[in-house]
Computed example of a mutant assay.
Amino acid sequence: MSVRGYAGTSVADIVRNAGVSRQTFYELFDSKQSCFLASYERRQDSLIEAIFSTPVADAPIDRFASFLGAYLSVIASRPETSKLYLIGVYSAGPEAVAIKLDKQKRFVDGVADVFDARTDAARFACRTLVGAISTLVVDALLADEVHSIENLHGPLVDVARKMFTA
């Protein structure tokens, strides 16, 4: 799917690439969508785990910088897969989009924990920051400018610093 996209990939493509029979595929999954959703959730959960397992720094902005760096590094290291899961997810239907939004909420919760965001305004700022990160990363992936993804780190940390430090 990371080569042909969600819509352009058939079950036949999946079984051929995975080296399994069609029967084995259908023993594991009901459909191409259920296969995608399982893969999507596994990838997003491992990405979240990688981000939040980064070493803990003392200052909130340093913790944010650390986990943002981990996120950008993972995204840039596998651009085809990142493009599939950040953009192609919309082709997999409303259930996939709902899972995407749930996973994005986990990122927001992580940012809120880092900055001890307790008020509605502070939580909204966290949502805004995560939305900006997502949009900028997707923009770079769509433009095939993978090299620019990690370059977002400094400017995004500066934005977070302005938003959350006095």
Rank of each mutant, 00 (worst) to 15 (best):
A12D: 10
Y90A: 06
S21I: 04
L101Y: 03
H147F: 11
R43Q: 07
F25M: 00
S53H: 09
D58L: 12
R127Q: 14
A160P: 00
F52Q: 09
T119W: 12
D30C: 10
E95R: 12
I48N: 05
L28E: 14
C126W: 00
V111G: 01
A65M: 02
L129K: 08
P94Q: 13
H147G: 12
H147V: 08
S34K: 02
Y71S: 08
F164M: 15
S77R: 01
R123K: 13
V137R: 00
D30T: 06
D109G: 03
K103C: 13
A59M: 13
S31H: 02
R43G: 05
P55R: 00
A125D: 11
E41F: 07
T24M: 10
K103H: 14
I14C: 09
F107E: 04
P60C: 13
A132S: 12
V138K: 10
S77N: 06
V89F: 00
Y40D: 01
A12S: 13
H153C: 11
N151S: 09
V11Q: 08
L47M: 15
Y40T: 05
G131D: 14
E80V: 04
P155D: 00
D62K: 09
A59F: 08
L142D: 10
E80M: 12
D116L: 11
Q104C: 09
L68I: 02
P94W: 05
L136M: 03
I99C: 15
L37N: 11
V137F: 02
R123Y: 13
L84I: 03
V159N: 12
G69Y: 01
D158E: 14
G19P: 08
G8Q: 02
V114M: 04
A7R: 00
G154S: 09
V159R: 11
V108L: 13
G154D: 14
F67E: 01
A50Y: 06
T165H: 15
Q23D: 12
F25L: 06
T119D: 12
L142G: 03
V74P: 00
M1H: 05
R78Y: 09
D109Y: 03
L72Q: 00
D102G: 10
E150A: 05
R42V: 06
N151C: 11
V146N: 04
A121V: 06
L141R: 03
K100Y: 11
K103L: 14
A122P: 02
H153F: 04
E95F: 12
Q33P: 02
S10Y: 00
T54L: 10
T135C: 08
I149A: 01
K105N: 06
L68V: 00
G88N: 03
G131C: 05
S91K: 07
R42P: 04
V15I: 05
L101D: 11
E27I: 13
D113K: 10
F29Y: 14
A132C: 11
F164C: 10
H153S: 07
R106N: 08
S73I: 05
M1D: 00
I51P: 03
V138I: 10
A96H: 02
A38R: 09
G131I: 08
I87Y: 02
A18E: 15
A65E: 06
L156R: 02
P55T: 07
V3Q: 12
E150K: 12
E41I: 14
E80K: 10
M1V: 06
Y26E: 05
R123V: 04
S73L: 09
P94A: 14
S46E: 14
A117H: 07
Y6K: 02
S31K: 07
R118W: 04
F124S: 11
